[in-house]
Simulated assay, not measured.
Amino acid sequence: MKITICITTFNRHLDLERCLRSINQIKLEKKILLNIIIVDNSINYNLLKIKKKLSKDSKYKIIFLNQKNRGRVFARNKYLKKLKHINPDYICLFDDDCIVDKYWFKECFKTIKKYKADVVTGPQIYLKSSNSKKKGNNFSYLFEKNYKNKKICCVKWAASNNVFMDYKIIKKNNLSFDKNLNKFGVGEDQLFFSKINRNGYKIFWNKDVKVYEKFHFQRQNYKWLIDRSYRLGVLGYYIDQKEYGKINGLFINYFKSIYYFISFIISILLLKKNYFEKITNNFVRFYGRLIGPLTFKNIEFYNK
């Protein structure tokens, strides 16, 4: 069985090294042939500086690629193009700052066997930091899927920082990430996996298929929160049109806009824990969806 791990990276060498060390520790059956694709998304191919070290330290063969056109969509489509030549049985998608749980493959195969899953995903768990401004103030939680106390459930899409999937799905349907979402820096994986779900494939979320991510301090910043909420609001219009058609998508977009406005009002009235960031997120998402059809084409590239 051939499995290829796909990672995109942009000037996060220490994080990438840590990610690869965690991959070395994954429990893997001997019959599995594993290799890794790393796509460097820097214009000057900065990964060349540590390429030899990464290859030496890795237990598995690494294929290095460079994508000079900035943006995650271009970088991810670069490894999809390379996969056509490798033709693996399964692929894994990780971010460069992920630490992969050592039982990750074991849990993925258990989910496939028990539930006949085509795609398996799971949580991204943020590592605690003693240097954070205050406990529980990582605004990323506002954008993570919350499946409450469920251990395993069928879902409509997956985030591409933690995915195991049958490669035949991509090959058969000639799938790629949507270039129109490249400038947003978010949302392209939602559309990608929503298409897979609409084509009848089953996506399962398993809480034990987990990866860890370090704490990013900028995600305590309200500027980061407002910017991300706004972009998700604006691009939501585009995703809805792709999923439901032009007219229905526009109607659904404004229905969701009303939903966020009502959530904004409720957040004000309830004054629960962390209410201010929830108020901010709900209002900005409402506003983004409200003006999304008018401003989608004018959004500038998100250079994070």
Score class of each variant (00 low, 15 high):
Asn303Thr: 12
Glu17Thr: 10
Leu65Ile: 02
Thr9Asn: 10
Arg70Tyr: 13
Glu243Gly: 03
Thr4Met: 07
Gln190Phe: 03
Leu127Tyr: 12
Lys49Cys: 01
Asp95Ala: 10
Lys51Asn: 08
Asp178Gln: 03
Ala75Ile: 09
Lys52His: 07
Asp40Met: 04
Asn180Met: 09
Leu54Glu: 05
Ile226Ala: 12
Val119Ala: 02
Lys82Arg: 09
Ile37Thr: 10
Ile258Pro: 07
Asn41Met: 04
Lys68Cys: 07
Tyr201Pro: 10
Ile239Cys: 07
Lys59Val: 02
Lys106Met: 06
Asn87Gln: 14
Ile226Thr: 13
Ile26Gly: 03
Asp95Arg: 05
Asn69Ala: 05
Phe193Ser: 13
Ile170Arg: 00
Asn46Cys: 12
Leu250Gly: 12
Ile7Arg: 01
Trp157Leu: 11
Lys52Cys: 01
Leu175Arg: 05
Lys116His: 06
Leu181Asn: 11
Cys19His: 01
Lys31Val: 06
Ile262Thr: 15
Phe296Asp: 05
Ile112Ser: 02
Ser140Arg: 08
Ile37Lys: 05
Leu271Tyr: 05
Tyr230Glu: 09
Ile170Gly: 02
Phe283Ala: 02
Leu65Met: 12
Leu270Gln: 14
Phe109Val: 05
Cys98Asn: 15
Asp166Trp: 04
Phe193Gly: 12
Pro293Tyr: 12
Ile50Phe: 10
Leu250Phe: 14
Glu144His: 09
Lys106Tyr: 07
Asn24Cys: 10
Tyr259Pro: 02
Lys51Met: 13
Ile262Phe: 15
Asp166Cys: 05
Thr295Ala: 03
Cys153Ile: 14
Tyr103Arg: 08
Ser130Cys: 04
Lys49Gly: 04
Lys2Glu: 00
Ser132Arg: 14
Ile32Gln: 00
Lys214Pro: 05
Lys81Phe: 04
Cys153Lys: 14
Phe217Gln: 00
Val284Ser: 09
Gln67Trp: 03
Ile26Lys: 04
Gln218Lys: 13
Asp166Gln: 06
Cys98Gln: 11
Asn161Gly: 15
Val186Asn: 09
Arg21Leu: 12
Lys183Phe: 10
Lys133Glu: 11
Ile266Tyr: 11
Val100Tyr: 02
Phe10Ile: 10
Asn131Asp: 12
Lys210Gln: 08
Phe143Leu: 01
Asp227Leu: 14
Thr121Ile: 00
Lys49Pro: 03
